[in-house]
Structure formats: C-alpha cells, structure tokens
Simulated assay, not measured.
Amino acid sequence: MKLIYFYPKTDNAPANLARELYSAIKIQKDLDLCISLYPCNDLYPMGSCSLIDLLFHSNDFIGVHMTTSPFFAPIKRFLLHLIAVLKGTPIILNYHGDIRIETMNQLKNKNWVNFLKYIPSYLFVSRFLKNAEKVIVNSYNMKSLVERKYNVSNVCVIPNAIDDFWFSKSKSKIHLEGCPSIFYHGRLSYEKGVDLLIKGLAKSKRSDAILYISGIGDQLDYLKSIAAEEGISDNVKFLGKITNDELKMYLSSVDLAIYPSRYEPFSLAILEAFATLNGIVFYSNKAGINDFVNNMNFELKSFEPTVDEIANIIRSHYSAEEVDHIVSMQKKFAKFFTWDSVSAQYIQVYNELKKNK
C-alpha cells in the first residue's frame, strides 16, 4: 500500500519541517508502506507521483498526508487536497497555525496583498478541517482551539522537532557587546511581539544592554522606528536573515534570549534556543511549547508578554548556580523533541490509517 506525501519546496518553517519529517520517516524501521512524494521531486524521482495517479488509481493509496496547512488557491497543494476529497481518499492534515488568526495578523502587519490572498482560506478552513480523517496540530493549545472553533473532534497532538545540529557545540563563539547581551530570532511580524521586546528594553533603563534581532518580516521598518523613538537605536542590532551556523554561534554566545510572542502555535525558535543557549531562555506563555513544559513538569522561564514583564526580565539577576541549573533543564527538555521520537508518532498515525483501509 502507498501513502501520498505532500513534499513542499517553499522556504518557510512549515515546509522545512515537512522535508525534515520525510527524511526522518523514510529511515524508520517500523514503516511498512510505500511513501510517494507529490509533487515530483528531483531528489527522490523514483518515489514521486502525480495527480493522475491519485485520480485514476486512488485504490492504491491508503491516504494523503497534507504536511502543510490548507490554502485555497490554484496551487498544487490545493489541487492535491481537492482531488483527495473528490476521490474519497483519507486525508491526514497538518494544521501548523490557525488560518483565521494568521489572516487577521496579516491585517495588523499591514500586508494587504497577503491579507487578500488569505481571505478564501479564511472562509473555507472549517471545510478543510472537517474533510480530514486526522488533523495533526503541534500543541495542546492548538488542539483546544481547533476543537472549540471549528467543532472538529479528530485532532491529535504531535509536537515539532529539531535535528541533532542544535545539540552539538558551536565551532566558535562571537564576542558580543552588551551587559547583558540579549537575543531574539524569528519572523518580524505582529504576532511575534518584537515591538514589546524593544519597548521592554527601553523601559528597563539598561543602557549597557544590547539586543540582537535575527530575522526578516513585514515589521522590520516599524521596529527600527520604535527603537529610534525610544532612543535606543544603538542598543538594538538588526542582523537580518542569517545562516543556521551563524545562528548557532549567536545562541551559544549571548547571555540570554527572549521570545515575546502574542500568538505562537509551537515555536521552533524557542526549542532551538533551549538546545543551544548557555544562558536562560525567557519565552512567552502564549507559545504552544509551554503546554509541553507544564505537562512534563519542567520549571522553565515563561512570562506574560507585556512591556513591563520584559523590562523586569532584563533588569533581573541570577546566580551562576541558578543559570547552570536552568540551562541543564532547558537542554534536557529539548532532548525529548528529536526527529527520531516525533517521526515514530507519525508512523503510528499511518498505521492506524492502514488498518482502516
């Protein structure tokens, strides 16, 4: 039996996760079915399939794994989803973030083009979810949201994962200015709360602190203007998009990291920081990863994403012993989220689908 696996080629976090997940799944010994990639892939040409295969040979497939969130547009992802529905082929659907929340975030980011592109998906997302045999979300917070908002009951939680790269020591460190040196990496958009971080730095009155921000996004110019208005332009360094090797060097070198998201279904950035940082990672309690921290009884440093809370964090002091203990807990927690363990959970979902065929 075969499973069609949507293998995206775009460069964004959900697409990168889908490709990493496939690499982990295909080496699992418990995998007892053939995975066919769609669209046709140059890296795996013998393991690819076309829409024609699903259209005329649907009985050969136990299901379709839509590895990125649904999107209503004339693109390959939507066409695959549509044909699977028309042929009655079971769909496993990854729902990485709520489309309706993301649509409104595009409005808050003043990204009018993306806002208009999202509207059809905003209207049809409930139907997408209800058409799926299984909806996979990456946090318990997202599970509650989907069940409550869309009246969908077939939801299971499988977290995101990171590879061994983040657990290995960085080849070198960077000498950074700032006492403390503070780091953030991720998209620069409204939901990420980076504006709160800059304002919190200003309110802390720590003139010796330097904030390093890695990432790109719609709010870049706006964030620079906030730093200028607050009179701390010299204390905020915008690094742009950097390589993973550079990112790991920064994470290994800074004193602390702060992730102030207003909304975050999971947060790979926080997980990467847990695995790599030699200082404390402070993260928003709105991030889905906090569900796992609480459920697994880890005591890590979450906070309410407000300017005052961030200012207090920047002003706070911890002994070397406290820092060492928290860092060891961060790394221990991150070890639970490797691709080996997470891919095994996906194979369980595949096996359930195979039994029901």
Rank of each mutant, 00 (worst) to 15 (best):
D208Q: 11
H185F: 14
V194W: 08
H185A: 14
S225R: 10
V236C: 05
E230C: 06
K205V: 15
S204A: 10
K199V: 02
A209L: 12
A227V: 02
V194F: 02
S189L: 05
A209W: 01
G231H: 11
L188S: 06
D234T: 12
Y190T: 11
S189P: 10
S189Q: 14
E246V: 08
G178I: 06
P180S: 03
S214E: 07
I216S: 15
R206V: 11
G215K: 01
E177C: 04
I182M: 03
I216V: 12
E177G: 14
K224R: 12
L201Y: 07
S189K: 14
S189C: 15
L176V: 10
E191Y: 08
G178F: 06
Y212D: 10
I182K: 02
R206K: 15
V194A: 09
D218V: 05
A228K: 15
T243D: 00
L211D: 07
N244V: 00
H185K: 10
A209H: 13
Y212F: 09
S204Y: 02
L247H: 00
E246Y: 08
L176F: 12
L223W: 07
Q219Y: 14
K192V: 01
I242D: 00
S214K: 05
S181P: 10
I210P: 13
T243Q: 01
C179Y: 15
L188C: 03
A209G: 05
K205P: 06
Y190I: 13
G231I: 00
S181K: 03
I210M: 08
S204V: 03
I242V: 12
E246T: 06
K248D: 04
Y184T: 03
S214P: 04
K248A: 00
A227E: 02
D245P: 01
L176I: 06
Y190S: 09
H185N: 15
F183L: 12
G193P: 06
G200E: 04
Y222C: 14
V194K: 04
A228H: 12
Y212R: 03
S204G: 12
I216T: 12
F238Y: 02
L201V: 04
G193I: 09
N235Y: 00
I182S: 00
S233L: 06
G217I: 03
G231D: 01
I242G: 00
L220N: 11
R187L: 14
